[in-house]
Design a protein around this nucleic acid. Structure first.
Length: 379
DNA sequence: GGCAATGATTTGAG
DNA sequence: CTCAAATCATTGCC
């Protein structure tokens, strides 16, 4: 007991003596220099840390996903991208959309709190170490440069932790994203309105149901779906209609009647001939005939052909067609006894112009004319 | 669960 | 690339 006490006293005394020695500053500097040299030789020139490419990648990704980067508006970056991928966020997927955004915000929050925590811990630890070193520098040769180096080491350690945080955040975002995308890959039936818009277009262009790129875009906008979905829909519709015309008879009649009413309204409203809604009606009439008895088909076929080739249908022709269509739809008899198989006749459809139409899209667009069907149907 | 409807994907042709 | 056709996969109704 006593011995220990004596020893400690001795050490303390010697430390004190050393510290108070008049040569101490000089000696200290010399020792520091020596240490500096050895440390430098050992540790090479690792001082300047080059920007880690992986870290940069992670940073970029986080920024792109809206996790890091500017507050509030940030989430919209990925959201907008996702929306763009889906071809415009419709009211349909807004639920999923907000769900995605909420989850992203959650990730973002966690990321930022964690980041803050790490930064705080890093600062605290750095100060602690610096204090410690400064204190020790009274008894050990520790230069400010060395302290700085130590701080750098600490920072590097913490930044590697940060990188892990960023990495796991990225993973979380990726998982969320893939799940979100998977969710939208799942088939969802279009809402009634969208289906009606598409059907209206289809049946009013039955003679040539190939919407142009512009028409597709407009339909997509109106239906809150993507252009690709519009293309899919028309692809499916064409094939399914052709395969089983009988089955679609009722539907066709319904939409034709509706278009007819619309056209009638339009023409009664404005007595001017150039009602934009009209060109389509010609098409519908043609298709109808095709699916109906031969006589009618023939008679309207020619009519259809005329109007179609003329591209611009006058009010007279239009109203004629409309009337015809009315008659046809009221005749009603054709649907009976016409089974799907009997109906199906690729040649007939060919004759109708589906296949013959050179570059369907280019053909369709002139039919559209100024103020296409869409604008009509929407109003 | 069976089934039809329907949106999406794949395949192959032009 | 677009399209037809076949097929897959999900939805929604019974």
């Amino acid at each position: 007991m006593k011995l220990v006490h004596v020893c400690t006293c001795a050490v303390l005394y010697r430390k004190h003596a050393l510290n108070c020695h008049r040569m101490k500053p000089a000696l200290f500097n010399v020792l520091c220099e020596i240490k500096e040299k050895t440390v430098l030789s050992i540790r090479g020139a690792q001082e300047e840390e080059p920007p880690d490419p992986q870290l940069m990648r992670l940073d970029n990704m986080l920024l792109a996903e809206g996790v890091s980067g500017p507050e509030k508006g940030g989430g919209s970056a990925a959201a907008a991208a996702a929306a763009a991928a889906s071809g415009g966020a419709g009211p349909d997927n807004s639920a999923e959309h907000s769900d995605y955004r909420a989850k992203l915000t959650q990730i973002r929050q966690i990321y930022h709190t964690e980041l803050e925590k790490y930064e705080q811990a890093c600062n605290e630890f750095t100060t602690h170490v610096m204090n410690l070193l400064r204190e020790q520098s009274r008894t050990r040769p520790i230069s400010p440069k060395e302290i700085e180096r130590m701080v750098n080491i600490i920072h590097r350690k913490f930044s590697s932790i940060q990188m892990q945080l960023k990495q796991s955040t990225c993973e979380a975002v990726m998982i969320l994203r893939s799940r979100f995308l998977d969710a939208r890959r799942k088939r969802r039936n279009f809402n009634k309105q969208a289906t009606e818009i598409l059907n209206e277009y289809f049946y009013s262009h039955l003679s040539n149901p190939y919407p142009s790129e512009e028409a597709k875009e407009e339909l997509a906008k109106k239906c809150a779906i993507t252009v690709a979905q519009v293309s899919n829909w028309f692809g499916n519709k064409r094939i399914r209609y052709k395969k089983n015309i009988g089955k679609f008879q009722e539907e066709a009649n319904m939409y034709a009647a509706r278009t007819a009413v619309n056209a009638a309204n339009a023409s009664s409203h404005g007595s001017q001939a150039n009602s934009p809604s009209t060109p389509n009606s010609a098409g519908s009439a043609g298709s109808f005939n095709m699916s109906n008895s031969g006589d009618l088909f023939m008679s309207v076929q020619s009519l259809n052909g005329d109007s179609y080739q003329g591209a611009q249908v006058g009010a007279n022709v239009q109203s004629q067609v409309d009337t015809l269509r009315h008659v046809i739809s009221q005749t009603g008899g054709y649907s009976e006894g016409l089974t799907a198989n009997q109906m199906y006749s690729p040649q007939g459809i060919n004759a109708n112009g589906w296949q013959d139409a050179p570059t369907p899209s280019s053909v369709t667009s002139p039919t559209e004319g100024p103020g296409s069907v869409h604008s009509d149907t929407s109003n």
